[in-house]
Structures are given as structure tokens and as C-alpha cells.
Lab assay of single mutants.
Amino acid sequence: GREWTEQETLLLLEALEMYKDDWNKVSEHVGSRTQDECILHFLR
């Protein structure tokens, strides 16, 4: 997939603090990424 922007990464980190590993909520918060993309990015 395409590179994550700084904004997307910030949203991901913010969402992780709020929702922990509720990836459905996390991906909704990021908006432009799927659950799978969020998980894969997080694991890097």
C-alpha cells in the first residue's frame, strides 16, 4: 500500500491511546485506513 502520512500516523497513535486494541474503532478514527492496514503499520 501507499506510505502512511505523518497525519495518519498521529491519528493511529491517538486512537491506540483511546481504544487500545479495538481495531474497528482505531481504523474508524484514522478514517483513511482499514483495520488490517492499521495493524500492519502498528506492528512495524
Rank of each mutant, 00 (worst) to 15 (best):
T34G: 11
A15W: 00
V26H: 01
L11K: 11
S32T: 14
L11W: 06
L40M: 12
E28G: 08
S27C: 08
H29Q: 08
F42T: 10
L12M: 05
D36M: 04
L12T: 02
E17L: 02
W23F: 07
R33D: 00
S32H: 08
G31A: 10
C38D: 05
K25E: 08
E14K: 10
L13S: 06
E37K: 03
L43Y: 13
F42S: 14
T9E: 10
V30N: 01
T9Q: 15
I39P: 04
K20G: 07
L12D: 06
E6Q: 14
R2P: 00
T9S: 10
H41A: 12
Q35L: 09
V30Q: 01
T5D: 09
G31W: 03
L40P: 05
A15T: 02
R2T: 13
D22A: 03
N24Q: 13
E37C: 01
D22W: 04
W23K: 03
L43K: 15
S32G: 13
L40Y: 14
T5K: 11
T5C: 08
E14I: 00
G31V: 10
L43P: 15
H29P: 00
T34P: 06
L12V: 05
M18N: 10
D21W: 02
E17K: 13
L10Q: 14
L16K: 15
E3Y: 14
E6I: 08
S32W: 02
L16S: 12
E17A: 09
V30R: 00
L10F: 10
L13V: 08
H41L: 06
H41Q: 06
K25T: 08
S32N: 11
F42Y: 15
I39D: 10
T5H: 03
M18H: 10
T9C: 10
L40S: 14
E28H: 01
K20A: 08
E28T: 09
H29L: 05
G31M: 09
E3P: 12
Y19K: 06
A15C: 03
T34I: 04
L16A: 13
D21F: 06
D22H: 06
H41M: 07
E28F: 01
T9W: 02
N24F: 06
R33Y: 01
E3R: 11
T9G: 08
V26K: 02
E28A: 03
E3H: 13
R2Q: 05
W23D: 04
L40E: 13
H29F: 07
T5S: 11
G31D: 06
L43C: 14
W4H: 04
G1K: 12
D36V: 04
E6N: 07
K20T: 08
V30L: 08
E28Q: 07
L12H: 04
S27Q: 14
H29N: 07
G31T: 09
D21E: 14
G1Y: 14
A15D: 02
E6D: 07
E8A: 00
D22T: 02
Y19T: 05
E17N: 09
T9N: 10
L10D: 15
G31C: 10
E37D: 11
W4T: 08
R33G: 02
L10S: 13
E8C: 02
C38H: 01
N24S: 13
E17W: 01
F42N: 15
V30H: 00
R2M: 15
K25F: 06
T5I: 07
Q35N: 12
W23G: 02
M18W: 07
L43V: 14
F42Q: 15
T34N: 12
E28K: 05
L11M: 13
W4D: 07
L11S: 11
C38W: 01
R2A: 14
E14F: 00
T9R: 14
L13T: 15
C38M: 00
L11R: 08
L40G: 11
T34W: 04
T5P: 02
E28V: 05
L13Q: 07
K25Q: 08
R2K: 14
V30I: 06
V30C: 05
E3T: 14
E37N: 01
Q35T: 11
E37G: 01
E3S: 15
G31S: 10
E6M: 12
D21I: 02
D21H: 12
R2N: 14
I39H: 15
A15L: 00
H29M: 06
E6S: 03
M18K: 09
H41P: 02
L10R: 13
L40H: 14
H41D: 02
L12K: 03
D36Q: 11
R33S: 02
E6L: 06
R33A: 05
T5N: 09
S27P: 05
I39M: 14
V26P: 00
F42L: 05
T5L: 07
T5Y: 08
I39F: 10
D22P: 00
V26I: 09
I39V: 12
A15R: 00
I39T: 14
C38R: 04
Q35W: 05
I39Q: 14
L16V: 14
G31F: 04
W23T: 01
L13D: 11
H29T: 04
W4G: 07
V26C: 15
C38V: 04
L16N: 13
N24L: 11
L11D: 07
W4L: 05
L10E: 12
Q7R: 14
L12W: 05
E6H: 09
W4A: 06
D22Y: 01
T34V: 08
G1C: 04
E14D: 07
T34E: 15
L16E: 14
C38L: 03
D21M: 04
L43T: 15
W4C: 03
E3I: 13
L40V: 12
L16Q: 15
L40N: 13
K25P: 04
L43D: 15
K25S: 10
D36R: 10
Q35H: 11
S27F: 03
E37L: 00
C38Y: 00
W4E: 11
M18V: 10
H29D: 00
Q35A: 10
W23P: 03
V30D: 00
E8Y: 00
I39E: 15
